[in-house]
């Protein structure tokens, strides 16, 4: 509703713009130009090229050989490795997003207390945020290797070693686990910021009225946390759809036998080493669309939810 009225105001003011404001427009141009031009050159042009390449045939030097319709998409979707990469990404993004957000809300509620000890807990969960995903992957690989710290501990107490990274199914679970370890802190911090907006008097009033902790959470905290939940789900899922660095280091680029290869990794390996720029670009367009659809759906659901309540 507000969007319409805002648009109307913008439209009314345009025809009456005096000469002075038009001159201001001239002054604005040099200030805005560098950012507009660089953004067009290094962000929009590559995006347009990705779309064009996805419908084109290119030789291994990247020279254009004409349009081929949806050939690249068909070949991408009939290539077992690429289909598996799409599946791995879907599993990682959906399972990861759900777990990170469920655990994240719970931890944020537990951590939402004053005191040094809670500050230290927060710091402990948050610190991976400052470390590169690549290095996080290398750290965990060193720990989860067959002769790494965890398996050495297991052998020490007489248990069999776990093939964290060498068995296909276990490896994907390991990737999800390390992803959670890596991203949970950010989510918790954002939920904690959201919890700050819940008025303490409201909770006190509710507990005076006899509401227990779960009722207070369900009836007061959760509805007020709504916008934070939306942002967190969008941010986590978009971030996980792009998982790349962690795969490079943790599973040495999608191992074992490509069973942890993500679509972001596939796009780059197809485009560079594989010389399949067309298929790589088709993958890029699919990833781009998935990002937009996902953000759109979450925001739409959210808006509908807010209309009901």
């Amino acid at each position: 509703m507000t969007a319409i009225s805002k648009g109307a105001v913008g439209r009314v003011s345009r025809p009456t713009a005096p000469l002075g404001r038009r001159l201001a427009g001239l002054a604005e141009f040099p200030m805005a130009f560098p950012a507009i031009a660089l953004f067009a050159l290094f962000e929009l042009l590559p995006t347009v090229l990705a779309v064009v390449y996805s419908f084109a045939s290119l030789d291994s030097f990247g020279t254009f050989r004409g349009f081929v319709g949806f050939d690249n998409y068909v070949r991408l979707l009939s290539d077992a490795n690429s289909v598996r990469a799409l599946g791995v990404t879907a599993v990682l993004a959906s399972v990861g997003t759900v777990l990170i957000n469920v655990i994240g809300v719970g931890l944020a509620v537990l951590l939402n207390h004053p005191g040094t000890i809670y500050h230290l807990y927060r710091a402990a969960i948050f610190y991976p945020f400052v470390i590169s995903g690549l290095v996080v992957g290398f750290i965990w690989r060193a720990i989860l290797n067959p002769d790494g710290a965890i398996n050495s501990l297991l052998r020490g107490i007489g248990l069999p070693a776990i093939p964290f990274l060498s068995d296909g199914n276990t490896a994907l679970a390991t990737v999800i686990g390390v992803t959670i370890w890596n991203s949970l802190g950010v989510t918790v911090i954002l939920y904690l910021a959201g919890l700050q907006t819940v008025p303490a008097e409201l909770l006190e009033a509710a507990s005076v009225d006899g509401a227990n902790a779960w009722q207070r959470f369900r009836k007061i905290v959760w509805p007020l946390l709504g916008p934070t939940v939306t942002i967190n789900i969008v941010l986590t899922s978009i971030g996980l759809l792009r998982t790349y660095d962690l795969i490079v280091s943790l599973t040495g680029g999608g191992g074992p036998a490509g069973q942890t290869e993500t679509i972001a990794y596939r796009i780059i390996s197809l485009g560079l080493a594989g010389g399949q720029v067309g298929q790589s670009s088709a993958g890029a367009v699919l990833l781009f669309l998935a990002t937009i659809v996902l953000a759109g759906v979450v925001l739409l659901l959210r808006r509908r939810n807010e209309d009901i309540t």
Binding site: F39, A50, G62, V277, S281
Partner: peptide, 29 residues
Amino acid sequence: NTRHRALLFYFLLGTFIPGQAILIPATTV
């Protein structure tokens, strides 16, 4: 003006473009 709002929207498009997805065409540029 509308063009200022359009300009903000122009840059915000960038948040939806996955960096790795455009890296190969970007190398061409």
